[in-house]
């Protein structure tokens, strides 16, 4: 039982305190609904976890200065990635895109002008996330951009429960006691390590699906009684 382990227990108390504080501050609406839904138990076995694989495309790495450009996600429950639940939306940032970034995310000004306002997209995302754990590759981006968006939209930075496939990969590589190139941690390289099919195109949804597939491959090589607590980012 995880409760015998002091560290996650204290972490959880801290997380719960933050959640309650945010809940008290959040205005009526999507963020409040999201925070009011209980999260999965820390002792929940990994193959029973309700997960949402999420990926963002952004105009840069700074959550305050840069903008969220597109959101893609799909549900991963009891070991099945459900493409019927997949979601992809481009956001209208109401500003011109820097040409050097267009090369990275392939979203054009024209496309983003036809996108939806940030508020609508975050609302859809929060609805999907209620009561579930976010699954991402490199959690800094998704965590900071979503928290920043919530701060701007609702005046509150919510705590977020996340599993990070990059950290799972890093843990595996660190255990080997051999020096490795940090580029090995990239999503593409981790996927080829597990011989998953190569996806040429990059967009928020296909990267979310790619992350979910990577997670399935990673967890089959973890012990059966692995729980949420040992995977949290």
């Amino acid at each position: 039982m995880m409760w015998q382990n002091q560290l996650p227990f204290r972490w959880w108390l801290g997380f719960e305190a933050k959640r309650k504080r945010a809940l008290a501050l959040a205005p009526e609406g999507p963020l409040k609904d999201f925070l009011a839904t209980p999260f999965p138990d820390l002792s929940c076995p990994v193959n029973e976890l309700p997960l949402v694989a999420v990926d963002f495309e952004t105009t840069g790495l700074d959550a305050v200065a840069d903008k969220l450009l597109s959101v893609g996600f799909c549900q991963l429950e009891s070991g099945l990635i459900n493409l019927g639940s997949s979601f992809h939306q481009i956001i209208n940032t109401k500003q011109k895109l820097k040409p050097e970034n267009v090369v990275v995310h392939h979203i054009t000004d024209e496309q983003q002008q036809q996108g939806l306002p940030l508020e609508e997209v975050v609302e859809d995302l929060l609805k999907a996330l209620a009561g579930k754990v976010m699954l991402v590759h490199f959690n800094q981006i998704e965590r900071h951009f979503l928290q920043q968006a919530c701060l701007e939209l609702y005046g509150v930075k919510p705590p977020l429960l996340m599993i990070d496939t990059l950290l799972i990969a890093k843990r595996r590589l660190d255990q080997r006691d051999v020096a490795y190139d940090p580029s090995e941690l990239r999503l593409t390289n981790q996927r080829s390590y597990y011989q998953l099919p190569h996806y040429a195109a990059h967009n928020a949804l296909s990267d979310a699906v790619a992350t979910a597939e990577l997670f399935l491959a990673q967890t089959t090589h973890l012990s059966k009684d692995t729980t949420l607590s040992s995977l949290l980012a």
Binding site: G79, L80, I81, L83, G84, P197, V209, E213, L216, H221
Partner: peptide, 30 residues
Amino acid sequence: IKLISICYVPKGEALPPAQCQGDKLFIIRK
């Protein structure tokens, strides 16, 4: 495409996987 659920079955396990009970068609992706 919308109907697809992706699952991962490690080497040496019998089909169908526990999470895919019922009448199912499988396509081998890899």
